[in-house]
Amino acid sequence: MKDLIKSLAGVSAPAGAEQEVIRAIRARVEGVADEVYTDTLGNLYAIKKPAAGASSSVKTVLVAAHADEPGVTVVDIDDEGFLRIAPLGHLAAADLVGRRVRFVRSKILGVIYAEGDAKRNAVDFSQLFVDIAVSDQEEARKLVQIGDAAAFAYEMQEVTPRVLLGHALDNRVACAVAINLLASANVPFQLVVVFSVQQQVGSRGIQVAGYRINPDLAMVLDATPTGDTPKAKRLNLTMGSGVAIKALDAGMAVAPALVQHLIEVAEKAQIPYQIDVSPEAHTDAANLQIARSGIPTCGLSVPTRYLDTPSQMMHMDDVDAMGKLLQAWMASERLFDV
């Protein structure tokens, strides 16, 4: 599992330019899914048909994990060859000064810095630039064009054998859990796993995926903030204490019956869990539940420290608990009947 996470978490895949990570995921699901395809926005769908002998009125469960991460896009190249950028997703300009990024199309590295007269705590994006070590605009244009996107360029690392650190653990860890699910699933319903794009800019990918698949039930896998660091916001979750079962986030309140069902499954299978009330967290669940006539949607997340920074921290115990609870939930007899 750690190797799978590591292979996905080092890839740069900013919102709107996810092709590299989508390719990597595709290579891993093609052997285990019955059908694999992408759509206009770039979402990857991996479909597992029901086990033999299932009835004709077969139901569909959608499991979604977004593949993108926050990043930056080039809006201008100046005469000296410095790139001007704008954010893709939730990044604070001040947090980017001195960070390394990799461009998706050309693979080149760059470092983000701020104009000399920018105030340290009040930097805005118009003052940031990316240095790609060229001498003028012409040279820069050979490597980068306006619209190119970049994301953090840091390898995943282990703080301890059970604690991971990386720039895109949100949400490659969930992608890895979903890939494992496809490999092992043998279920009496149709399972559609969507590796969704453009979550960071407002869950755009999942909007069209939800419309396309129109499932009977949906589960969104993501990362969620903890409240266990010095003077953190007052949140319930602590790293290493179990998978987070979503009750509320910035976009939705999960139906109480769906939350209760997940709790019962977790307790029965003795899987550590915590309840997730994160009023400021955004996930694909909110946009998925409003597709067509409405889709019953719930969510599991990995409690994560330092979200939206290059040093996101997760505990493997929580990741394992997410995988186990997902499997147990899908095996539950009452899945469509809560």
Binding site: D39, T40, L41, R204, Q207, V208, Y211, R212
Partner: peptide, 9 residues
């Protein structure tokens, strides 16, 4: 427009 239904180029 680009997010209508299943997505439009």
């Amino acid at each position: 427009i680009h997010l209508s239904e299943m997505g439009i180029l």
